[in-house]
Amino acid sequence: MNSAIEIMMILLVLSDMALLGLSRLRTCISIVSFQGMLLGVLALTMQLSAITPRLILIAAASFIIKGFIFPFLLRRGIREAGAQYEIEPFVGYIMSVIAGLAMLGISFWLGAKLPLFAANTLLIPAALTTLFTGLFLIIARKNALNQCLGYIIMENGIYTFGIVSVAEIPLLVELGILLDVFVAVFVMGIAIYHINREFDHLDSDRLNILKG
């Protein structure tokens, strides 16, 4: 079981690096969808000895929402906006991957510092790397769809951190959180639709009328 968790964590970190280095939006969405499914499985694997209906419900909900519904919404956004690539990011792709490696290093250092109980030494660093990757993508990319992806990745990181360090959060709270994230992506999707219709592009760098 431990080796399975280890493999999942390595996959999570590798998918983060891929997201940092890729420019094709469709591929990025597929990777984020993969991450979502991975986390659903991880939630079950972590508690393999004590699977409860509550656990299955949470894992299934996040599996479906993050693995299927988010990608569906985002792909529709791409179709409507006709944006296939991030044209000119603030930070280039090679530099992004280098930054990703630095974030990985920082995550390991932080993970060692925090007195958290975790089943495996890889868990906390992988969660933090995912969190930082999401944050980095929001800052370093201009395309609004990419920023929305960054938010989902960041949320994936926090979700991993949650199932790793405090699995006992009450069901109601967990469902509330999932609902909020779901609505957040939904609202961002509507905002992207309006922005595309009004401006004819999704370049958040060029949303610069308001100043001072």
Partner: peptide, 8 residues
């Protein structure tokens, strides 16, 4: 729209 995007 710009304000809303930044806000959200």
């Amino acid at each position: 729209l710009e304000a809303m995007w930044k806000y959200i």
